[in-house]
């Protein structure tokens, strides 16, 4: 029983040390902005374009469908790029650092 109590005390002490001893800086990651959201959307639209091209080359999509779908996706991509260009004056925000 004494051994079990000693074990329990040691486990508690080690846990508290791990939880509350925080040396150095903390990683907070980049701030999520409208521009970063638009970049994510742009990647998705490009991926959709890539899929469409592939399906066209595989013979799944007729020519007329392909041209119309491609034009739609390109319009969407152009809109996103235009908005990103408007929002972006400088570089992507650097990761934030917290004070230790």
């Amino acid at each position: 029983m004494i051994l079990a109590i000693v074990c329990a005390a040691l486990i508690t002490a080690a846990s508290l040390f791990y939880i509350f001893y925080l040396p150095g800086e903390l990683y907070l990651g980049p701030e999520k902005t409208r521009a970063s959201y638009l970049r994510e959307r742009k990647d998705v639209v490009y991926e959709n374009l890539r899929d469409l091209n592939f399906e066209y080359r595989a013979g799944k999509v007729p020519d007329a469908d392909y041209q119309s779908l491609k034009a739609n996706l390109q319009d969407e991509a152009a809109g996103l790029l235009a908005e990103i260009a408007r929002l972006e004056s400088g570089a992507i925000p650097a990761p934030r650092k917290a004070r230790s």
Binding site: D51, P62, A64, D65, L69, N72
Partner: peptide, 8 residues
Amino acid sequence: AWRKTSFE
């Protein structure tokens, strides 16, 4: 296809 698919 995404968006629309023709009968063809």
